[in-house]
Amino acid sequence: MEYLKIENLRKTFGGVVAVDNVSFDVEQGTLLGIIGPNGSGKTTTVNLITGFLKPDSGKVLFKGRDIAGLRASKITNLGIGRTFQMVKPFYRLPAFKNLVVPLFSPRVKRMGGHYGEKDTLALDILEDIGFERDSAVPYKPASILPHGYLKRLEMARVIALQSELIVFDELYSGLTLAEVASISPMIEKLIETGKTIIMVEHRLKELFKIAHKIVVLDQGKKIAEGSPREIMKQPSVKKAYLGVEL
C-alpha cells in the first residue's frame, strides 16, 4: 500500500484546466519535489491534496484512505501539514503565540507527547527552527518580523502539528542563499526523523540536492517523473522550462 497516492486528480477553474489527470505517489520517508513553470498547476495540486480546494474528480489516497474533498482542518489533523507560498502568520500575535494556535488542534491533543505549558513548547520549537531564544525575536509581533523569519514560522507550524507528511509550497522563494543554506539541513533532518515531504519549488538547484523523486508539471499535466538525475536529462522538461539551464 502506497503512503500517499494521487490518482487522476483534476481541477478546472471556469473552463481553465488547472490540474489535468495528474497521478503520482509518494513513499514514506522520502522527499518528492514538484516542479514546473509558472501556472503549471503546482500550487493547485498542493491545495487539492491539503483540502484547500475540492477536486473535480480523482482521488487522494493517504495511507489507503481517500481524503479528497475533506475539510482542510480535517486533513491537517490526519497528519498532512502544509506551508503557504505567501506567508500567513497571525500578524497581531507575537511569534511564539503563533505556534500556540496549532497546539490547540485535536491532532496535537491526541498525539500528546508534550508536557508543560504551551508557551514553553512553542519557544522550544522556535529555538529549534532558528529563533534565538534569549533574544526578543520570539516575543515580537509577527507583523514586524522579516520575511526569512516568517518562512521559518510557517515551518514551525507544521513541526508543532507533528505532521507526518509535510507539504512545503515554495518554501525557498524570497529567501537569500544563506537562509536557504540554513533551512535545507532542517529539511534533511525532518526526513531523517521519518517524515515524508513534498516540496513545490522553483529553486531547482537546491531542490535537486535533497529530493529523492521529482514530478514535473506543465500546463496542468504531468510530463515527467523520476529521480533528479533522470529528470535533468529529459528533453520534454527542458522544453517546458525553455531557457532555464538545468
Binding site: 477553474f13 471556469g14 491545495n47 484547500f52 480546494l53 475540492k54 482542510a72
Partner: peptide, 9 residues
C-alpha cells in the same frame, strides 16, 4: 467566480 480557495475556508 470569486476565488474558490477563499470560499472554502
Amino acid at each position: 467566480k470569486s476565488k474558490e480557495i477563499e470560499e472554502r475556508v
